[in-house]
Amino acid sequence: MTTELQKTLALDQELFNAVRLIKAGLGQLQTLNAGNDFYHLPLLTLASGFERFMKVTLCFRWLEVHGSFPTSKALPSGRNGHDLKCLLERVRAECFLDDYVDNIPVAKADVEYLNSKELLSFISVLSDFGQAARYYNLDVVVGRNVQTDDPDAAWQRLETEILLARKDLMDEITNNPASNRVHIEINNEVVSRLERFARALARLYTIGKIGVEVRRYLGYIGYFLHLSDSDLGTKKYELSGSAL
């Protein structure tokens, strides 16, 4: 039988893994350019990292509300367990408490952002990837009914939307086709959006007051917690996911 101590240590390790996976995924995004189109790696890393971060957050909230660790039925499993959109809906419903959202201006801003197309378009691609699209090519090979878009193409379409909305980048392509600035700026914008998501989750562990136990983990989530708006999209991440 699993002891309470074992469960505590496992939840501790899972949060640590989640944060490192997200950091590593952001670092992998920053390496994408004209010579490196290996989108599969950051998609795999980020989908796993954010799934774990949200599940751990729900576990802590369950522990606070029920006074015990969640049962196996408390969290979705199998393919449904990789549905980031569903997990995000649960985090919004169960963890963004009325007293927090109504009285803390940044909490209201976080909730609005979690509902925005700016974020959800990327979460949708990561969600599809986690559920099925990571095997897109194999499904095509064996003739399975493919239910998602090619994940690389889906992510690149989102990058194109950022490009088309930036006149300065369109001008850069016209005036200096060999410039790498366009890739760098798009990567920074994507990283900024995902950092803001991670920061919104991290705030739940302090000013969000979702439970007593979460206060012990400031050391894990502190990096995202302390990102200011001006910091978003400006930090350099290690590919290993280690602290800078």
Rank of each mutant, 00 (worst) to 15 (best):
A93K: 11
N80E: 15
H82N: 08
G78N: 10
E118K: 11
M54V: 12
S48N: 07
N103K: 11
L58C: 08
S68T: 15
P76I: 06
P70V: 05
R92T: 04
S116Q: 13
L97K: 03
A107W: 01
Q28D: 11
C86N: 13
Y39I: 03
N36C: 14
A34Q: 13
D110M: 03
L119R: 03
Y113C: 04
L41Y: 12
S68W: 09
L43C: 10
L87D: 01
A107P: 03
D99R: 07
H66L: 12
A109M: 08
K108H: 13
E89P: 01
D99G: 08
D37T: 12
V101A: 11
S48F: 00
L120N: 07
E118Q: 13
R79W: 07
R61E: 06
N33A: 13
N36Y: 11
A109E: 12
C86P: 02
L84F: 04
P42S: 07
Q28N: 10
R90H: 09
R90K: 11
P105F: 06
S116A: 15
H66N: 15
V111G: 12
Q30M: 13
N33Y: 13
A34W: 08
P70K: 05
L63Y: 05
P70D: 10
E64H: 11
Y39D: 01
D102T: 10
F69V: 04
F53G: 00
V91E: 00
C95V: 08
C59D: 02
E64W: 07
L120M: 13
A107N: 04
D110T: 06
L84E: 00
H66A: 14
E64D: 14
L29Q: 01
L29H: 01
Y100S: 03
L114K: 05
S77T: 15
S68I: 12
V101H: 08
M54K: 02
T57G: 05
N33T: 11
K73G: 06
K73Y: 14
S121T: 14
M54P: 01
G81D: 09
I104C: 06
F53I: 02
L88A: 01
L58M: 10
I104N: 04
G81L: 06
V106H: 10
S77W: 09
Y113E: 03
L44D: 05
N80W: 09
G81Q: 08
E89W: 03
A93P: 03
G81R: 03
K117S: 15
S72P: 00
N80F: 09
K73P: 00
V91N: 00
